[in-house]
Each structure stands twice: as C-alpha cells, then as structure tokens.
Design a protein around this nucleic acid. Structure first.
Lengths: 154, 154
DNA sequence: TATTGTTATACTCTATAACTATA
DNA sequence: TATAGTTATAGAGTATAACAATA
C-alpha cells in the first residue's frame, strides 16, 4: 500500500534531510553576521518563550545543558540574548532576546522564508495546501511534551 | 491566505527541525555501533549509487570535498565502505558499500523507519496519504540537479 | 592548466564528567 | 540531598587554504 505507515516513514527519512540542507544554507547565507541553524532555533524559541530558563531551552531543542550553556554564551557575547539570575530562585537563569537579537532573527527568518517561498511559488495552490496540511500533521506529531507544557504557561 | 507561498515556507521552517531531531535520535540510538546521520546518509547514497566518486557524494550531500574525504575516512576505517583508485582516471576514487556497511545501513534504516512508522500508525489513512503526497512534492522541489543527473547514469 | 582528492588547521556543535552555587 | 547551571575536556562534522597527483 502506498501510504502504509512504513512507506510514509521511509519517504520522510529520505526527504527531510534534503529540505533541511536547503534551510540551513539559507539561514547561514543571510547577509551581515548570519546565524547558524542552532542559534537561529535558540533565538526563535526564546522569542516565543520570553524569560525561559536554560533548562527550558535545552530540553526544547533536545540538547544537553552544557551544550545549551555554551550556545547561550555565544548569543550573550554577541548581544543577541540577555542572561540574568532569577531573583526568586537564584539557581535559574532568565533568558531573553535583545532588540538586536529580535531584529536579526526576524531578518534571518524573513530571508529563509522568502527563499523557500520562492520555491513554493511555482506550485499550484492545491499542492501548497497539501504541504500546509502535512506540516500541521507533523507539527502535532513531533511537538515535544515539554514544548506543549511551556505553551500552556506562556 | 492560509496557503500562500510565504505561509507554507514558515510552516516548513518551523516543522522540519522537529522532525529531524526525531530522525537523528532514532538513527543514533540504533543498537550496536550506531551511525551518525551524516554517516547514514553517506552510506545510503553509496548504496544507491555504487561506484560513485568522492565528488559525487560530496555534491549530493552538500558538503565540501575535504569534509567528505574525512567522512569517508571514518567509514573506510570501520570497514563500511571501500575506496579504490579508478583505473581509468587515477585521480578519482571509486567508493562502494561493503556487505557489512550494507547490513548496518539496512538495520539502521529499518529501525528509524519502524520508530517513525509507529508514530504514523495512529494517523487515519487520509492523513498518511497527505503526508505521502507532501513528501513527493518536497522531493521534487529539493532534489539537487546533481542527484538527478546521477540517477540518469546509474 | 584543470581536476580530483588529501592534509593542515580552525571553528561550531555536541557530549560526559566533575564542579559550584542555591534550594 | 537535589536541582540549575558552568567548566573541563573530547570527539564529530564542517569549512578554507595549501598541497600532491593525475589528466
């Protein structure tokens, strides 16, 4: 059967890396400083979840605490993110995107989105609708429990 | 409009990393040695394109020649790939997956595919069909020219 | 000269283990 | 003791620049 779970899984495994390669290149090739994909995603999460802790971000992006600590180091160094102690619990760090970080994020996102959108322009609207539906399905399936929990808070 | 090119592009940018994170974890968590995602993809390409050169693989996977040279070093070291001079043009290397590489690839792919398939089992067939269509659309859009050319040869 | 690949070097991202500070 | 985060260290994957071998 063409749409058995296993068949669809095989298609996803084949196609995702192709698309990711393109997105990565587009995010990186952004003029001015440019963000790596992990930086881009970290900024994106913090933009959506202002005041998140280091653990929040690490868990959402699926990396360890030390890895995220270093990543945030670099973002703080570049003045894209602020990092402060939580007054209520001084073990926790409160992270926020700076205005500079936000504008860079918006620009990078707009660029990557524009490049992708350009590719999708050639598609008939019905195929774009299929892609849109598919993304919704995947989002629901792969959204992490942690992300869901955070969205209930914020 | 919900399915404008830009909207779909935004959805793709949001959702792809979520799915990739899952695939990467599944490929890596495979019992025994385990393959990284780049190793997995390199093996997969060589399995489909026996006798490909280093440039072929590098171009297909979108990495530089030195990067792929190192990657192949590791695969040769682990006896997953053979690397020999092309008798007809001694600058070129002829790469092939060993039987051991192939069985590891098959096992890793089956595992990742099974894990993903498990997630898709809960979906109604109509949604799986939507995903399948979407993957076909994306594959055609993002397949590199080089890959297309190679497929005409092999 | 042009092409194919490797070596040298460096940077980013990732991890595990050990540590500090706070609760 | 347990939790949040950092530091120390190491390994994989990536890149650019310089080189070697072959066409």
């Amino acid at each position: 059967m063409a749409t058995s779970p296993a068949t669809v899984a095989g298609q996803v495994i084949d196609v995702m890396p192709l698309v990711m390669r393109s997105i990565r290149a587009q995010v990186r090739q952004h003029r001015t400083p440019g963000l790596s994909l992990p930086q881009f995603r970290t900024l994106g999460f913090l933009d959506q979840h202002a005041g998140a802790s280091l653990s929040d971000v690490a868990e959402h992006l699926g990396v360890t605490l030390p890895s995220m600590s270093k990543m945030v180091d670099s973002l703080v160094e570049e003045k894209l993110v602020t990092r402060e102690f939580d007054a209520a619990d001084r073990r926790r760090m409160i992270l926020d995107v700076t205005p500079r970080g936000r504008s860079l994020l918006i620009a990078a996102r707009a660029d990557a989105q524009a490049d992708l959108a350009h590719m999708f322009e050639t598609l008939p609207a019905s195929k774009r609708a299929t892609l849109s539906e598919a993304m919704d399905i995947l989002r629901l399936l792969f959204r992490s429990e942690r992300e869901t929990a955070l969205e209930n808070i914020k």
